[in-house]
């Protein structure tokens, strides 16, 4: 009797819960979703995430509220989202630096692979190797060759960023004197290379200055070519074993229901593939690069390992 009673209870409870869980997935979202942006309002990551949110809320049927949580190169926001409830109502639109660069260097209070489920990737600005128009270096080879006989300085957006680490590994592999000069943001590094204060710079947003002839593009740090400059080689094409792939993707805290992840992936991918979003991103000089959640996860895992290796070599 006791046995039956307990089993009945279990059965009843089970029956009561099952449809609820199913309903929860089917109905998702039933309230507004928060999309955290790890940078300040008004930057390109913020502006593109806001557009993504505006267009996706029409598909999902619930408002998506963008919340800026800047500071510590994005790691503050990542830490906050990692510990958020994995119910699909807190998401983050994040980039390369807090996903696989900074975590490879020091303890940041989260593990990108264990604490997040990537949903999809929708952008990622190209970083170019640029030199002033009157520079003696015409190719990446010439730049590396020049760094064999004397120090060649290069500016980046900041210490221990992805661009810096990529070139640090190049310097090590080729045994050259590539001297890093970190700036406070990519725009100041661009100004320094325009003024000839550094020999080269590794920066995004170089298109107009290169087309105007003020800067020369020697190559891109990404794994693929920039469609605007198909002749500029990737580092790998130039025979150098390094790359800094740029991602801008949406992730959820690990443990979020796979059905919710699938629903979000479909919705965000639909937005990213639309003509409206593409036009918007072109106005912003940002590429649209769509990747599935699984591919994004693989990309992060691969780069996290690569950057840990580089960081070890740098003696950290």
């Amino acid at each position: 009797m006791r046995y039956t009673r307990r089993s009945t209870l279990v059965l009843l409870t089970g029956m009561a819960i099952t449809p609820l869980a199913a309903v929860a997935q089917q109905d998702y979202p039933t309230r507004p979703i928060t999309l955290v942006v790890p940078y300040g309002a008004g930057g390109t990551t913020d502006i593109s995430a806001r557009q993504m949110a505006t267009m996706a809320e029409k598909i999902l049927g619930q408002p998506i509220v963008v919340e800026n949580h800047p500071g510590a190169s994005g790691t503050n926001a990542m830490r906050a989202v990692a510990s958020a409830e994995p119910d699909g109502y807190t998401l983050i639109a994040t980039t390369s630096s807090p996903s696989f660069v900074t975590p490879a260097l020091r303890d940041v209070g989260y593990d990108t692979l264990a604490d997040f489920t990537p949903i999809m990737n929708y952008s990622g600005p190209f970083h170019g190797v640029v030199v002033p128009a009157d520079s003696p270096y015409d190719t990446l080879d010439a730049l590396i060759e020049g760094a064999k006989s004397g120090a060649v300085t290069y500016g980046t957006a900041g210490a221990m960023g992805g661009a810096h680490l990529a070139f640090a590994s190049v310097a090590k592999d080729t045994g050259t004197m590539l001297q890093h000069v970190p700036f406070d943001g990519a725009s100041k590094a661009t100004a320094a290379v325009l003024g000839g204060h550094v020999d080269a710079a590794l920066v995004p947003a170089y298109r107009d200055l290169v087309q105007d002839g003020q800067l020369r593009l020697l190559g891109v740090l990404d794994g693929t070519n920039d469609a605007d400059f198909p002749d500029a080689p990737t580092l790998k094409e130039a025979g150098l074993a390094a790359e800094f792939p740029s991602i801008v993707g949406i992730m959820a805290p690990a443990g979020t229901d796979p059905a919710i992840i699938a629903k979000l992936e479909t919705a965000f991918t639909e937005v990213a593939s639309s003509d409206g979003f593409k036009t918007f991103m072109t106005d912003l000089s940002q590429p649209v690069r769509i990747m599935s959640g699984d591919d994004l996860a693989a990309r992060i895992e691969e780069n996290l390992a690569a950057y840990r290796e580089i960081a070890k070599d740098l003696g950290n």
Binding site: G43, S187, D208, L209
Partner: peptide, 20 residues
């Protein structure tokens, strides 16, 4: 030059771009 000097002008730069 498309090079903003501080946070305010960086935001203004974004606004210019958005409006083509």
């Amino acid at each position: 030059l498309g090079i903003p000097g501080d946070a305010v002008t960086a935001v203004i730069l974004g606004a210019f771009m958005l409006h083509g």
